[in-house]
């Protein structure tokens, strides 16, 4: 009742118009930039296999990433259709926000998801060959072969693989999910194959801080390679020498 009264007041109607106008203006100014970013994912012709000439990677600028922003997480959940059951210990979180607190109290926020290692421990321990690394560097689970043994979850040092414990109520056409299989970030492989940016990168550019850069690590002219060449980047747990596809800036 009080909500309705508030909505009817002329002051709020005016504010709403103003906000609507501002949102429309923001949409216009964002749109050209977004278009440019879209064009930066090279497409390959339909019917051709992924090539090892390409290595997809992602660069996270932790100086831009904010503690209170989870645009990437929301976008991933909507795109791939994973949801929680209010059980934090077992719920799927293909991508999660982490806050690292340094000894001096400085806080760094970063998204943590599958790091798409060149030497993936998950794939080495998989007894059925369900976990594999595609030629373009994306680490995937072939759920047709996954028997749900969860060795990969134990092997992964980043804790970014999840087991589906319960029947899945609603499924995204983008990503099949089923009880009894392991899943994790697939770098939005269905979007990459269409030449579209992963959902998290797109959302971070549109609604977030623009902290994520996606591209081909093998191509020295790509935006991600130039950013790494210019400012440097590091892997989380670089000591494990897994040659991760996801790199971070501003960690140390």
């Amino acid at each position: 009742m009080s909500n309705e009264q508030r909505n009817d007041s002329p002051v709020n109607a005016g504010r709403r118009r103003l906000l609507g106008g501002a949102a429309a203006l923001a949409g216009l100014t964002i749109a050209p930039g977004v278009f440019l970013v879209h064009a930066s994912v090279p497409t390959r012709p339909e019917g051709t296999p992924a090539s090892d000439q390409v290595r997809w990677g992602m660069l996270v600028d932790t100086n831009r990433c904010r503690v209170d922003c989870d645009a990437c997480v929301t976008a991933c959940r909507e795109e791939n259709g994973w949801e929680g059951h209010d059980r934090p210990e077992t719920d799927a979180k293909w991508i999660r926000k982490m806050t690292v607190t340094e000894r001096d109290g400085r806080q760094t926020s970063l998204p943590m998801m599958c790091q798409h290692c060149a030497e993936p421990p998950c794939a080495y321990v998989c007894p059925t060959g369900a976990t594999f690394r595609r030629d373009d560097g994306i680490v995937l689970v072939d759920k047709h072969l996954c028997i749900g043994c969860r060795y990969c979850m134990m092997a992964c040092p980043y804790q970014v693989r999840f087991f589906v414990h319960e029947p899945v109520a609603s499924r995204s056409p983008n990503h099949p999910r089923g009880k009894g299989t392991v899943e994790g970030c697939n770098l939005c492989v269905h979007r990459i194959d269409q030449g579209v940016l992963p959902a998290c990168v797109e959302a971070c550019g549109e609604r977030g801080q623009g902290a994520l850069i996606f591209g081909d690590l093998n191509d020295p002219r790509s935006r991600i390679s130039r950013a790494i060449a210019e400012y440097g980047a590091e892997s989380v747990r670089a000591d494990l020498e897994l040659d991760t596809g996801v790199r971070y800036q501003g960690l140390s």
Partner: peptide
């Protein structure tokens, strides 16, 4: 098609 598309990335919508 399952083997081609999942493991090799050959897309034939």
């Amino acid at each position: 098609h399952k083997r081609d598309s999942v493991r090799k990335g050959v897309r034939r919508p």
